[in-house]
């Protein structure tokens, strides 16, 4: 018996064992989709497509679910999650757009223009920013930025102008977007810098040798060629932004409210709550079946969002391949 164990593994056995472990990853994904979908089903079933619409106050609906007890009726599943979906899209899109611009500029700076000493400083800083836990970002957001915005930036007049609709206290869309941007920018910078470094020098040299300045050469040749890597960074960072729960729940005000761009600047100061933040905040009440189904439904949506992003990035790379841009 011991002898058999001590025998070197045969190739076949090693391959099968390793392969089985590798396949466990697929099993996990399959289970994840299946379990979450099953748990989410009652919520979708009860609401139909109106799940995605705005119908009444979403916070009241969620409260009702908590109070509905162990055997909810179909009416207790009532949910119109649009404000949460909208908040998720809003924070994600805004912060991803800001982070894209910010990270592209910073990456070009790092790769091409930064003086050597500054580069030595900035590279570890980017890695550090990427490593800071989201709860620390949330803490700084809620203890530093929120009081500043609530105290200095939002004038009493502005608060009064919307006081019958929503309370402006500083926890707001703008804080969420700013902090989220700071959180996801390092991820994008890391991917973009790697991508820019992997572009053959000879392309940039070829452009520079034609009398094009380094800035234009960078944008028209190197950045163009690095688009797949940049896309990959955007996708990774966006996935992070969609799913960010803790930080958003700390700084965004935790109101099932849909900020209205028609409010002008006030729009930026209005509170909101994303789906991920809702899940983390209401997870205490997850034993209420109606609440459980609603939260799993949101989780399913987040999962789907990740899938869409992956497919989107894959599609975006396709036309570039024609011109020899490698992924």
């Amino acid at each position: 018996m011991l002898d058999r164990l001590r025998q070197p593994w045969t190739d076949r056995r090693a391959e099968l064992t390793l392969g089985a472990l590798a396949c466990s990853v697929l099993l996990v994904i399959a289970f994840m989709i299946a379990f979450i979908a099953v748990k989410a089903w009652p919520s979708f079933n009860a609401n139909g497509l109106s799940w995605f619409s705005a119908k009444g106050n979403v916070d009241q609906q969620l409260d009702a679910m908590v109070n509905s007890g162990a055997n909810p009726t179909k009416a207790d599943y009532q949910l119109g999650a649009w404000p949460l979906i909208y908040a998720t899209l809003l924070t994600t899109v805004l912060s991803a757009a800001c982070a894209l611009v910010f990270s592209l500029l910073a990456s070009i700076f790092i790769v091409e223009f930064a003086p050597e000493r500054l580069r030595r400083l900035i590279v570890p800083i980017v890695r550090l920013l990427a490593a800071v836990p989201s709860v620390v970002y949330g803490l700084i957001g809620i203890l530093v930025i929120v009081p500043f915005i609530g105290g200095s930036l939002i004038s009493p007049g502005r608060k009064e102008s919307v006081q019958y609709v929503i309370q402006l206290s500083g926890t707001s869309l703008i804080v969420a977007v700013v902090v989220l941007t700071v959180m996801i920018t390092p991820i994008m910078i890391a991917m973009t810098v790697d991508g820019l470094h992997s572009i053959p020098r000879s392309w940039k040299e070829g452009a520079v040798a034609l009398g094009v300045n380094r800035w234009r050469a960078m944008w028209t040749v190197t950045v163009r060629a690095a688009r797949p890597a940049i896309m990959a960074g955007v996708v990774l960072a966006t996935a992070r932004a969609i799913g960010e729960a803790i930080m958003i729940s700390m700084v965004a005000g935790s109101k099932g409210f849909a900020p209205n761009p028609a409010d002008g600047i006030t729009f930026l100061f209005e509170p909101l709550r994303t789906m991920a933040a809702t899940i983390v905040e209401d997870s205490e009440s997850i034993n209420a079946p109606a609440m459980q189904a609603s939260l799993y439904a949101m989780a399913l949506l987040l999962l789907a969002g990740g899938f869409v992003l992956s497919i989107g990035s894959w599609l975006a790379k396709q036309p570039l391949k024609k011109y020899g841009v490698r992924s």
Partner: peptide, 10 residues
């Protein structure tokens, strides 16, 4: 790419 909160619910 799966959010940690989704993993938690899973």
């Amino acid at each position: 790419g799966t959010p940690d909160i989704v993993l938690a619910l899973f």
